[in-house]
């Protein structure tokens, strides 16, 4: 009795951890496990659940849903590759520009970051007005500068729509990449530059032999984030092409496919919470190993100071 009391007293501070732990467990940890479990059931959302084993996975991976699934998965892969190329590389280049000590650097930094503070759906709506085929500013501007042939129905063309959405996404997130790289460049020990100059290195060599290698960990982290974001993309496609991810499904990603199956109904070959949970679990299986690496890197870097 006395011992129990003293243990209670000794660990009485633990109650302060309870709210965070309880909310997190109830609304994050438990739902993840529960979602996994749900993927083995057939269930329209109400009424009894029917255990179907791996049938949902079979339907998605090799059965009647597989065509839609692989098409969406392919679009996610394209999203990752193109958004990496249009995000990481120009982000690094502009960060180098901003590190050159040119007039107005702070002004540019702030300005470049503005789009990143805006809601993705709102950015999507704004650009769908700008890209509108009848009126759209972009087409009008192309005509004025004599490039009228390039005026296209950007969001209505099955080959152009996805790259257009990716570019709009790049427009919004560029500031984030620029400033993250810039923070990395500023953190590099300046003495390394001086030492290299004494050894006769030119500025180009300083960039390629010192700065870029020093930025590899940041490039790695940003690449991982890009993977996680690319496989979870939803808002921008929804805003610019709707739940059907038109034209003719040419911008359909796993996020919109999942939404239709679990919540939308319309236009999907099947509806259901179990099938939806299956798609989500598959997304999770793709993203999870990469996420583990991310946590490991972040932990390591924090420990290193």
């Amino acid at each position: 009795m006395v011992a129990a009391k003293s243990i209670y007293k000794r660990y009485s501070f633990l109650w302060m951890l309870v709210p965070a732990l309880a909310i997190y467990t109830m609304l994050i940890a438990y739902p993840f496990v529960s979602s996994l479990a749900l993927s083995f059931f057939k269930w329209p959302g109400i009424g009894p659940k029917e255990y179907v084993g791996l049938a949902n996975y079979k339907n998605v991976l090799t059965g009647y849903m597989s065509r839609e699934f692989y098409r969406a998965l392919g679009h996610n892969v394209i999203f990752f590759i193109l958004s990496w190329l249009t995000g990481i590389i120009p982000g690094l280049i502009f960060a180098l520009f901003l590190s050159a000590g040119i007039w107005g650097t702070n002004f540019f930094k702030t300005l470049f970051f503005i789009p990143n503070t805006l809601s993705i759906v709102i950015v999507g709506f704004l650009w769908s007005l700008l890209l509108n085929p009848q009126w759209g500013f972009i087409n009008q501007a192309l005509k004025i500068v004599g490039l009228g042939v390039l005026a296209k129905p950007w969001l209505g063309d099955t080959t152009l729509a996805l790259p257009t959405i990716i570019l709009v996404n790049a427009w919004r997130s560029m500031g984030f990449f620029i400033l993250t790289f810039l923070a990395g460049i500023v953190g590099i020990d300046r003495e390394m530059f001086e030492a290299a100059r004494i050894d006769g290195a030119n500025e180009w060599q300083i960039i390629t032999k010192i700065i870029v290698p020093q930025l590899i960990p940041i490039i790695g982290t940003l690449t991982i984030l890009k993977v996680i974001w690319s496989f979870n993309v939803f808002d921008i496609v929804f805003a610019m092409e709707g739940t059907q991810a038109g034209p003719a499904g040419s911008t359909d990603v796993l996020g919109t496919l999942f939404y239709r199956i679990a919540f939308g109904g319309l236009g999907s070959s099947d509806v259901g919470m179990g099938l939806g949970a299956t798609v989500v679990t598959l997304i999770f299986l793709i993203v999870f190993p990469i996420s583990i690496i991310y946590v490991y890197l972040v932990e390591k870097r924090t420990k290193a100071g």
């Binding site: 739902p31 979870n232 939806g276 932990e299």
Partner: peptide
Amino acid sequence: YIIAGLVLPVRLAIIPI
């Protein structure tokens, strides 16, 4: 356990939530 949530995209658990 808590920081594992850094990389669990919450929306993937949306059905049970």
